[in-house]
Write a protein that binds this DNA or RNA. Sequence first.
DNA 1: TATTGTTATACTCTATAACTATA
DNA 2: TATAGTTATAGAGTATAACAATA
Lengths: 141, 141
Amino acid sequence: MHGDPVQAFDKAFELAARLAEVMRHALAERDLTPSRAEVIYVLAREGAVMQRALAEALRCTPRHVTGLVDQLQDAGLVERRPHPDDRRATSVALTTKGAATARWITESRHTAASALLGDVPGDDLAAFVRVADLILRQIAP
Amino acid sequence: MHGDPVQAFDKAFELAARLAEVMRHALAERDLTPSRAEVIYVLAREGAVMQRALAEALRCTPRHVTGLVDQLQDAGLVERRPHPDDRRATSVALTTKGAATARWITESRHTAASALLGDVPGDDLAAFVRVADLILRQIAP
DNA sequence: TATTGTTATACTCTATAACTATA
DNA sequence: TATAGTTATAGAGTATAACAATA
């Protein structure tokens, strides 16, 4: 069974479902959800960001961002600040605790990657990334 | 950047999120959700199945199966029948329309697999499946 | 008039707990 | 007493629409 597209396709979906489950479970340890974690990830990468920009980054509605930021703010991970140039807008940024959570996420990623993939031959990993990239390009938004 | 575990790990998650989104979108065309589609998939593979067994196959609660079967029954895709040996139990099976939907799912899978992976070299596909299998074994339930 | 964010409302997916009918 | 399924209830995630303040 070498290189059957349907087999690889099914495998990708099975992997998708299981990884999502594992990720939800790991994030729950810090009372995070995939969406909340993505907010933290975006803020760690980009610094202070308008809620509107968050909605675009997460591809969700502004209303939903309000809720996510509410939750993260209640948990002390982010803070709202008035936008310096536009008094309608709200700027969101990580708190010290939020930055620590971002580091925890990064470390967990590295730890899990080593545990799951540390023994995989480099050529196989490279092929995996090639195929994944190809799929991602073809289903790009 | 040949064979970085963290890169492959991140790629797997990105792929997971996008494929889930694509699948939800494709299934919505027939008013299906991933869970409802999985019920159909199980029934297509195993024939008539007790609701209790469905709950185990989907790794969800019996209560949730009640709801899923209700929805699929309303849509005319499955039917409930009394279990021949146990009057407490309910047996669920595909209707003719449900069997047709199962075939549509299979065809869609093949079509999408060809479109997304038809041009990928066989060796890369095989490596992709190898890595995916390795990850799946390590995070097995 | 258009845009930022919020309040109000609702739908879907999923879970726990209590209950009924059977085993 | 234990099991199969259902009713009742609840919580998370997400969406649309109407509205406030500001641009």
